[in-house]
Design a protein around this nucleic acid. Structure first.
Lengths: 185, 185
DNA sequence: TAACTATGTCACTTATTTGAGACATATTAC
DNA sequence: GTAATATGTCTCAAATAAGTGACATAGTTA
């Protein structure tokens, strides 16, 4: 993928995340190219949106997979996955937004978000921790999954809005998530 | 406010929450009125948006204020505020979205969200609990505030998406929030 | 019944956004 | 230096959405 194409995608992710009806003119400006150039790389708005989705999905899945593999200890796997998602920042938010709202293109299926089985690996860990009574087993898996995502978003948002320092943000997220699921490390 | 006007506002809140660029045609359809009628009640899109904002803000503030006053015990105040916000469902999400994204009209100031001092009352409780070391005092106030909001949204979303039963959702939210801020009741 | 009010239907204008063609310009490679 | 490639500018047509005027209709009230 050319630099220009990536630059446009990066600009689009930022623009659409703030305002999913941002004009292509605005995206082009942010990417510092003309609108005509944008149209040379992307057939139409939908094509651009799809490219953003695919690119961000790949990056997030890659980051989460690496985080998963970075340690043998299940809890550390989860913690590193949390950190990895936070580091993805706008990329993660964009993907998450796509999957929880249907305002963009109707997302065909949620399968893609589970590609490379990141999600199922994650669920497996949580499920095991519940079986071992190391975390609160009254909470359901879907709840914990949604909570995980929303704490990540909170963390990303907190940094962006300047409410919380970048370093603190990850720490707070992990502390809060641990507490929320009743985990004593 | 007439029934029709309220019906249009309700439809608009639901539509705009899913897709902030929903057409007025769509809103009118959802409200079961013609677009012409919608325009008779609201000067233009911005007017409709402002009306939604004011209406939802009032309802949420009212609900939270009542919850605050419903008990003398600080922790129960907070719990009831959490429940009240969850019960507001789409209303709460709409308001929250407005204040964290600038995609709608640029929100003039954040003052309004603190009207009736709901926010400052809430902050005061949390601050006191931190001073008394009853909750984790390493977390900053803004973090806890954002976390509170995002757990509410998670709870609302969990019910809407069918992931979690309505009754469980509030319980999970409170359990998770307590844990996240290190509160032992 | 007659007048009034709320709403719907249809038609129209305007503004905005999108996508693409034609051509100029600039940068790079050979 | 020339050819090839990438990008910009300018222009234009089509699509969509927003807002409004004119008039019809249904329901309500006096």
């Amino acid at each position: 993928m050319t630099d220009v194409k990536l630059k446009i995608i990066a600009a689009a992710v930022k623009c659409f995340r703030l305002n999913d009806s941002a004009t292509l003119e605005k995206v082009a400006q942010d990417a510092e190219v003309s609108r005509r150039t944008l149209h040379r790389y992307f057939k139409d708005r939908q094509d651009l949106l799809d490219s953003c989705k695919n690119e961000m999905l790949d990056r997030c899945n890659k980051a989460m997979n690496e985080a998963y593999a970075s340690d043998n200890e299940p809890i550390k796997k989860v913690r590193n996955m949390l950190f990895a998602a936070i580091e993805q920042g706008a990329n993660y938010s964009f993907v998450k937004r796509i999957y929880e709202r249907s305002s963009f293109s109707e997302v065909d299926s949620k399968k893609e978000f589970e590609s490379d089985n990141v999600k199922s690996k994650w669920l497996k860990i949580i499920q095991d921790l519940q079986k071992q009574k190391r975390i609160n087993d009254e909470l359901t898996l879907p709840w914990i999954f949604n909570l995980f995502g929303s704490i990540i978003e909170t963390s990303i948002y907190a940094v962006e809005s300047g409410d919380v320092a970048r370093n603190d943000s990850k720490k707070f997220a992990w502390t809060s998530f641990k507490g929320a699921i009743g985990l004593n490390e």
